[in-house]
């Protein structure tokens, strides 16, 4: 009888250990991913600001240049506001003229990186809320992942490759894509 009890206890401990190991690995994986996504988002924001600064010097567009500098120099606290200001300036310029593929591509990459980052932060925060993770503080070695809350940075789509004959139709295409999200 004591043998069976031993076996049962041993089995329970083993199952618990396996579960904890798997959960710890899950917590670590999700936090590592959220962190990597945050670094990638940061890199794409810097690229967008750099592309915007180049465009601002070429045009020239002083307000856009100021917004790009603001985004590059932004203090950690008000970075989101600085990025939103840059998005607004880029949209204002895009309404007047073609911003060029580098800025459009950089804006698209920011949009995708932000979407993926948001999803991965949500996954990491969800796993932190699990009871065993909270009780055993499995996530305490990881900083709390934070959302990066900015407006959708998407600009108008690429202009139609065919020269636009009927101007009105072309303008409609561009605005429909800009608001198409």
């Amino acid at each position: 009888m004591p043998d069976m009890l031993y076996t049962a206890v041993l089995l329970a401990v083993l199952v618990l250990a396996l579960y904890l190991a798997a959960t710890t690995a899950r917590v670590n994986r999700l936090h590592a991913r959220a962190g990597a996504a945050a670094r990638a988002l940061d890199a794409h924001l810097v690229r967008r600001a750099a592309a915007a600064a180049v465009l601002a010097e070429r045009l020239p567009a002083p307000l856009l240049y100021a917004a790009a500098r603001g985004a590059l120099d932004g203090a950690p606290g008000d970075r989101e506001a600085a990025e939103n200001a840059l998005t607004r300036q880029l949209r204002a310029v895009a309404a007047r003229c073609d911003v060029g593929e580098p800025v459009r591509a950089a804006s698209r990459r920011v949009a995708v990186a932000r979407q993926v980052h948001t999803d991965l932060v949500r996954d990491a925060l969800a796993v932190r809320r699990l009871r065993p993770v909270r009780l055993l503080r499995l996530a305490q070695q990881h900083a709390l992942p934070a959302y990066f809350d900015i407006d959708d940075p998407a600009l108008a789509g690429a202009p139609a490759p065919v020269p636009v004959g009927a101007g009105a139709a072309g303008v409609r295409t561009a605005t429909a894509q800009a608001t198409g999200d």
Partner: peptide, 12 residues
């Protein structure tokens, strides 16, 4: 571009 973003989010 989405592939690239996914790779970035895993590799950093």
């Amino acid at each position: 571009e989405v592939y690239a973003t996914a790779i970035e989010a895993v590799s950093g």
